[in-house]
Design a protein around this nucleic acid. Structure first.
Length: 531
DNA sequence: AACCACTCCAACCGCCATGTA
DNA sequence: CTACATGGCGGTTGGAGTGGT
């Protein structure tokens, strides 16, 4: 529609783009691409032609539509028009409450898998669902309301736990790729559960894209809000906010949010966790923007600058809400849970390193890490008991990361909200997985002054103030080395060995700046899940 | 009535997976 | 094995519509 670069005519807008640009990558285009193919809204006459064609020839072979029917539309456009508007049994109109509930539920399971979600909603198209999510649901975040009602969160959580249990059934030698090939949308859950990496694997949203999906993790256990938006909206009261599915949960969330706002984070330790931003300027691999404390003041700012060197701001989509019950209490964790949190974070598979198969993406990387973890498992367990001593240091390191990330904030960026949301909601997982890589990113820390009050409360700020975030030696010395560099090195070594590289822990560490695969991972290992 | 802010949603874009020659 | 064609998917855009001031 608005993308048309062409000329208007009585028939609509015709593309004058080059053939290659007519259909983006030209895929799915017709053979005479770019020869006066029409863009923009479909007319009823065009619809009639398309319907007639499909009646005669059936669906598919969309490029032939233009050839055989004279319709000046590319095959892609024809398919889209048919699928979204012309095919029979399409259900038009607003989503019913049941459909809304289902969408939310499905999104909690699948993430932004609109097509798969549409398969569960007869008569609905992926586009409809997508639009629904990106608009109506999105408004909830502006009001500081959770996208997922508590029951959905709990359900997803319990189902995730089931997946975890069932995934254990898999033989240890079963190839991960075999699992990956499973087309079920729960597959990623299985993968990550099996790898014991993610108590909570959020959907990894496109940084540049709809921030709304990120905010789908406004589950109670994450308590992510969008405070920067609250109060800025002219329309704070949204009809959707009264959506029955949310009801009490929404109210609870609102209360929680108020609590956050007024109390300035009563649990200050928890909010100091995190924010290890997977920034890797070295490549454009899929990123998993994780690690910002969901309660950090990040969203008070809530802006992220895409203009900043946040290379590789792409999406690796994974199922959302793959957390486990253990995360449910993260909002207001008691001290003991923080201890266990720190313990888990330091005893877990702290494997961030550039030896991961960057080119093959996250899942490949997972495979590698899983192998490495098996090798280093014993070492990790041996060191686990002493790992808590590095908790503060890790916090500092993560805080440093947050500072680093704050350097990329740009209030003018439209993506800011997205990023804020991302980090707001991913922290619990990622912070647990304070990794070597996270610390190796420290040298990227920008020297520009940031207002840490956006991120940290006074207690943790004290720690950060004592650190020169621009100095990797400080970071490494204070957090890395004290929190078990040996074990981390062992992990790195293990992976290096697996990859056949000559990497040692040192060399791997030195490559940390260019690594990102595990930066992208919420490399959390619930040690309790390990045998 | 005019203006503005915001929402909705149809359609496009770009990437990816798969099939086939 | 490679290149190409095709279909599908998710993200994004921008005009139209709506409501408030």
């Amino acid at each position: 529609m608005g993308h048309s670069i062409g000329y208007e005519s009585e028939e609509g807008v015709f593309s004058t783009d080059s053939p290659l640009s007519n259909d983006g990558d030209n895929s799915g285009g017709s053979s005479n691409m770019g020869v006066g193919l029409k863009k923009g809204p479909w007319t009823s006459a065009e619809d009639a032609i398309l319907v007639d064609y499909v009646k005669k020839h059936g669906e598919g072979n969309w490029n032939a539509v233009q050839k055989h029917s004279g319709l000046s539309r590319c095959g892609k456009s024809c398919r889209l028009r048919w699928a979204n508007h012309l095919r029979p049994n399409l259900k038009k109109g607003a989503f019913t409450s049941e459909e809304e509930r289902l969408i939310i539920e499905l999104h909690a399971k699948m993430g932004n898998k609109w097509a798969r979600m549409a398969a569960h909603l007869p008569g609905r198209t992926d586009n409809e669902i997508k639009n629904y999510w990106n608009t109506r649901i999105k408004r909830r975040q502006r009001a500081g309301l959770p996208l997922y009602p508590p029951e959905i969160c709990l359900q997803a959580s319990s189902e995730n736990q089931e997946n975890l249990n069932s995934s254990i059934v898999y033989g240890g030698d079963k190839g991960y790729h075999d699992i990956l090939q499973n087309d079920g949308y729960e597959t990623p859950n299985v993968i990550f559960d099996r790898l014991n990496i993610l108590p909570y694997t959020p959907e990894f949203p496109d940084i540049s894209a709809s921030g709304s999906l990120i905010n789908g993790f406004n589950c109670p256990q994450f308590h992510s809000f969008v405070p920067q938006m609250v109060g800025l909206q002219k329309r704070t009261q949204d009809p959707d906010e009264t959506m029955s599915d949310y009801g009490e949960g929404a109210a609870n969330e609102a209360l929680s949010f108020d609590r956050v706002q007024n109390n300035n984070f009563e649990n200050k330790t928890s909010q100091s966790y995190g924010l290890c931003f997977p920034y890797d300027p070295g490549h454009t691999e899929k990123l998993l923007p994780l690690g910002v404390n969901q309660d950090s003041h990040f969203t008070t700012n809530g802006f992220f600058s895409a203009s900043k060197p946040f290379a590789g701001a792409e999406t690796l989509e994974l199922p959302s809400l793959q957390y486990q019950e253990t995360d449910l209490g993260f909002w207001d964790p008691p001290p003991e849970s923080m201890d266990s949190f720190i313990h888990a974070s330091l005893s877990g598979p702290l494997s961030s390193h550039c030896t991961s198969p960057r080119s093959s993406g996250l899942l490949e990387a997972l495979l590698y890490e899983a192998k490495a973890l098996r090798k280093s498992e014993n070492q990790l367990s041996d060191n686990a008991t002493s790992s808590t001593t590095g908790g503060i240091a890790d916090i500092s390191a993560m805080k440093t990361c947050s500072t680093e990330f704050n350097g990329y904030l740009d209030p003018t960026s439209p993506s800011a909200n997205s990023m804020g949301s991302i980090f707001n909601q991913c922290t619990p997982t990622h912070t647990i997985g304070s990794s070597l890589e996270e610390k190796m990113r420290v040298p990227h820390v920008k020297s520009e002054v940031v207002d840490e009050s956006w991120f940290f409360d006074g207690e943790t700020k004290d720690i950060s103030n004592q650190m020169d975030c621009s100095r990797p030696d400080v970071i490494l010395g204070s957090s890395w080395s004290t929190s078990g560099s040996a074990q981390r090195g062992s992990v790195t070594d293990a992976i290096a060995v697996l990859l056949g590289s000559a990497g040692t822990s040192t060399s791997a560490s030195n490559r940390g700046l260019c690594s990102c695969t595990w930066n992208n991972m919420p490399s959390v290992c619930q040690m309790s899940d390990h045998p």
